[in-house]
Nucleic acid binder design. Structure first.
Length: 542
DNA sequence: GAGTTTGAAACT
DNA sequence: CAGTTTCAAACTC
């Protein structure tokens, strides 16, 4: 009672915000915000303590132990109701089944009860003396508080990084979520982690270094485990997805995925195009298979990292955590992104100017508009450049930490902070330009009581203007991305044992401007070169 | 469906 | 924190 009463004094709004962030970085939430466990606890209480109405009638078949696989984070401030609704598994858009506990002694107020553990009210369950309902909400809240006091993460999803939701444990859903791991890990002794006693197995995830299980067979290479799966296609696809996710997240710089846990089983998995598979790691594969019945403690042996990536052990020998580094980590820096953004703004302005000069359609107002746009853009650009020079040190933002720039709350160029614009801000700046156009154009026309003809022709000009701006901006951005891909491929090739990696170069779809990317030299493998080369393309065009 | 096994949660 | 107990799901017959 006292727990929930105590924590309920915390400011709710702030905590809600806090946990939204926690949700985003759930996998590393504790690492990021170790100083706010109480806040997490409070937010969970707030999320769980709200009285909600029961869910719709259950489906035909009870769902067991869904909590282990329940992907819904409590931190989203979901109410029991919403979670109850989500509790209905949806696979391929088809609503599935819902939990029905059979608790007898716990009053459904302990984590033994999967309904309670999932943060939902019991409904149509087979439990006895159930207190996990609206009628006993006071007791329920008390139980929630007690549970959270024992374990602030008690209501957190146990499976992290899972891109899938189809974890109801049924055989047809046995698609291993390769990206997912059990946060706490299992502690199985007799089941070999190949039965649903095992939370990892039940959640369709491989056992990881978080587990303390014995005689584990729930790892990729295990034959028994393979036999449980009808086909390897699902696993294959999972790893493709894993690789893709890792690459994407790494390229973007998602920090919470920067520490991709290398499971003691999964570290032995052969990822598709990893070039870091040293002899030692290959040896480890064999060794692990041999030592399957006497598992060696997790060590930081050379591990197979995400494809094409560099891996850095968290500590030299002590930790088995790996830090995933995208091939683009050293290529795409935050400064480059900023430069690209400012470049696109300039390109947009130049498009306006070029179109106006070409067609000669711009009247005086149009010239004013144009000059205002260009000056505005140039002003912004110069401001951006200034800010780039004085902004946060590159090391703080580059690579897998780029996302921290967006976490600051002000997304992009802030008049107060003076920070350079983010891509999203860039889009907003386009809107600002729209507003400027309207402000400079329409009122004048209205003031002069201009004819509709004048307005419509001006609108046509603006339409062309926007089209041209959009075309050029997208073209530049397309070039940039293509070049980025090339650089990533080249870097990946450098880490790959295979000398030949196909560089996915595409022809520019329009305007006939094509950049040769296969000739990108090693020296150019940095973001500045990329931006500069794009800049050169822009110069050529203009 | 009853009984057993199992491992997480709770407790000491 | 480790050992023990309680609990309910998973499993077997």
């Amino acid at each position: 009672m006292e727990q929930s009463a105590t924590v309920s004094n915390f400011p709710q709004r702030k905590l809600a915000k806090q946990l939204e962030f926690t949700t985003m970085c759930r996998a590393s939430a504790n690492a990021i915000l170790p100083e706010h466990p109480q806040a997490q606890l409070q937010a969970k209480l707030l999320a769980l303590a709200k009285p909600q109405s029961p869910p719709p009638p259950p489906q035909s078949k009870p769902q067991r132990r869904l909590r282990a696989a329940h992907p819904l984070p409590v931190a989203t401030m979901e109410s029991p109701k919403s979670r109850q609704q989500n509790n209905i598994e949806v696979k391929d858009g088809t609503p599935k089944k819902q939990k029905h506990c059979h608790c007898r002694n716990s009053r459904c107020l302990k984590l033994y009860c999967e309904c309670f553990a999932a943060g939902i009210y019991c409904d149509a369950c087979n439990c006895t003396n159930c207190h996990n309902n609206v009628e006993h909400d006071a007791a329920r809240q008390e139980a929630v508080g007690a549970t959270l006091e024992r374990n602030p993460n008690a209501f957190q999803p146990k499976i992290a990084n899972s891109p899938h939701k189809s974890l109801d444990g049924r055989e047809e859903a046995r698609e291993v979520t390769a990206m997912a791991i059990h946060n706490k890990g299992c502690n199985c002794k007799k089941s070999g982690c190949l039965k649903k006693y095992c939370e990892c197995f039940q959640a369709n995830v491989l056992c990881s270094e978080n587990c303390k299980c014995m005689d584990c067979k729930n790892f990729e290479e295990n034959e028994e485990r393979k036999a449980l799966f009808h086909g390897d296609h699902a696993n294959f696809m999972s790893y493709i997805q894993q690789a893709a996710n890792a690459a994407i997240n790494g390229a973007i710089g998602t920090s919470h995925l920067g520490t991709l846990p290398a499971s003691k089983k999964r570290k032995n998995q052969k990822l598709f195009f990893s070039g870091t598979a040293s002899d030692q790691s290959i040896h480890r594969i064999t060794q692990f298979q041999q030592e399957n019945h006497l598992r060696a403690p997790a060590t930081s042996s050379s591990l197979l990292s995400a494809p094409g990536s560099c891996t850095i052990s968290a500590s030299s020998m002590g930790s088995s955590k790996l830090i995933y580094r995208s091939p683009l980590t050293d290529v795409l820096r935050s400064q480059d992104v900023k430069e690209l953004c400012s470049l696109l703004v300039i390109v947009s302005a130049e498009a306006t100017k070029a179109l106006a000069e070409k067609n000669g359609k711009m009247d005086k107002k149009g010239d004013q508009l144009e000059s205002s746009l260009v000056s505005s853009d140039q002003e912004k650009h110069s401001k951006v450049e200034d800010n780039v020079q004085t902004s946060i040190p590159d090391d703080c933002l580059s690579g897998d930490q780029v996302d921290t720039a967006g976490d600051s709350g002000s997304d992009g160029s802030d008049a107060q902070t003076g920070r350079p614009p983010s891509p999203s801000t860039l889009a907003l700046m386009c809107d600002e330009q729209d507003a400027m156009v309207r402000a400079t154009g329409s009122p004048d026309a209205a003031a002069s009581n201009g004819s509709l003809t004048n307005q419509s022709s001006q609108g046509q000009i603006f339409t062309e203007l926007y089209a041209e701006q959009e075309r050029i901006v997208l073209t530049k951005f397309w070039n940039f991305l293509n070049r980025l891909i090339t650089c990533g491929s080249i870097k990946e090739a450098m880490y790959s044992p295979s000398p030949k990696i196909k560089l996915g170069i595409q022809q520019e779809p329009q305007n006939g401007v094509t950049t040769t990317k296969t000739e990108t030299s090693h020296k150019e493998l940095n973001g500045t070169s990329i931006v500069k080369s794009v800049d050169q393309v822009v110069d050529k065009m203009s």
